[in-house]
């Protein structure tokens, strides 16, 4: 039996209201990755992570639990019980492998290293790095999304931010397109880090001869038209891209967006996509933490799923 939709929506809303994120983790989880990097806090241009990379290991843990609940005949009871005892449930749900958290932190550190190779000067907000509200928007929780968006935008303006550099497709779309639609006074400029890197004429530090296939995230390919930038950056470093069956604006979703509502259906979609991608090449490049999580949970032992930033770091950084 599938988890009850109302309960899932209620938990998402409660968490965003309570801790500003859809998953109840400590604020330190959001900015711990940046410690020791020497990023300035006060800057007009900031790296805005939207907290997605940091939350992905926790999302993966929760999806695993939800899958078990989905297979249970008592799913509705379990979910409502879990919601009422949310404090205890939170602690049970968010027990997460340390290695996976560190892996996602490393992605963010490598993005910083790559951006430092460009002329762009940027800072980071540390404890003020915030969640965009993407899940509220996706689920049609528009009133809650608007409230959250107003809080995020007001805080960014208070901190003197003018330009955001985003790192994932969901946050990029929300901050670039949806905030502009929802908040008439919105004035922030938003660039994705792949756009920044692609327009910076970076010189490869080393050439890597390797075959890969690219999984285009839906939001990059169809909503934001970020398609050529990653290909250009990889090809400049010697990477040979073997295009899969459905790519670019005709890309096939990884199934990630419904992982909290229907984890089993989400897995079925991921399996179909993984079959398409791994038929082309066993090295799969992803550009979104949600795609990484959902494709990784169905990958075969001989298949490698890795974030594009790891490839770009190997090419452009010492």
């Amino acid at each position: 039996m599938a988890p009850p939709i109302k309960e899932i929506l209620r938990i998402i809303v409660e968490n965003v209201i309570r801790v500003g994120m859809p998953i109840p983790v400590s604020r330190r989880v959001v900015f711990k990755w940046a410690e020791g990097l020497g990023l300035k806090k006060n800057s007009e241009t900031i790296l805005f992570t939207g907290t997605l990379y940091q939350l992905v290991p926790y999302i993966t843990s929760i999806v695993g639990r939800l899958e078990s609940i989905e297979k249970s005949k008592l799913s509705s009871l379990l979910m409502s019980f879990g919601a009422k005892l949310s404090g205890i449930a939170d602690r049970l749900l968010v027990r997460t492998p340390r290695g996976e958290i560190e892996r996602q932190y490393e992605v963010l550190r490598r993005i910083v290293a790559l951006l430092k190779k460009t002329d762009t000067r940027f800072g980071y907000l540390y404890e003020d790095d915030m969640y965009s509200g993407a899940l509220l928007y996706d689920m049609g929780l528009d009133n809650y999304f608007r409230e959250h968006a107003e809080k995020v935008y007001d805080r960014l303006k208070d901190l003197g931010v003018e330009t955001l550099i985003t790192v994932d497709p969901h946050t990029t779309y929300i901050m670039k397109e949806v905030y502009r639609e929802v908040l008439p006074r919105y004035s922030l400029k938003v660039k994705n880090y792949l756009e920044v890197l692609s327009s910076s004429d970076l010189t490869p530090y080393r050439i890597i001869r390797k075959d890969v296939t690219i999984h285009d995230p839906c939001y990059y390919a169809r909503y934001l038209k970020i398609v050529e930038e990653p290909r250009k950056l990889l090809r400049s470093g010697g990477i040979n891209i073997i295009e899969a069956n459905r790519v670019r604006e005709l890309t096939f979703c990884c199934g990630g967006p419904i992982e909290s509502i229907s984890p089993t259906l989400s897995r079925s979609v991921a399996l179909m996509r993984m079959d398409e991608l791994s038929t082309s090449c066993k090295n799969i490049v992803v550009m979104c933490p949600i795609c990484y999580a959902n494709l990784s949970r169905v990958k075969a032992v001989d298949t490698n799923v890795d974030d594009i930033s790891n490839y770009l770091y190997s090419i452009y950084c010492e």
């Binding site: 939709i5 839906c218 169809r222 909503y223 005709l250 979703c253 990630g256 967006p257 419904i258 509502i261």
Partner: peptide, 11 residues
């Protein structure tokens, strides 16, 4: 609520 809102249909 199980639509991925992936936008493939729009194309």
């Amino acid at each position: 609520f199980n639509c991925l809102v992936c936008g493939a249909c729009n194309t």
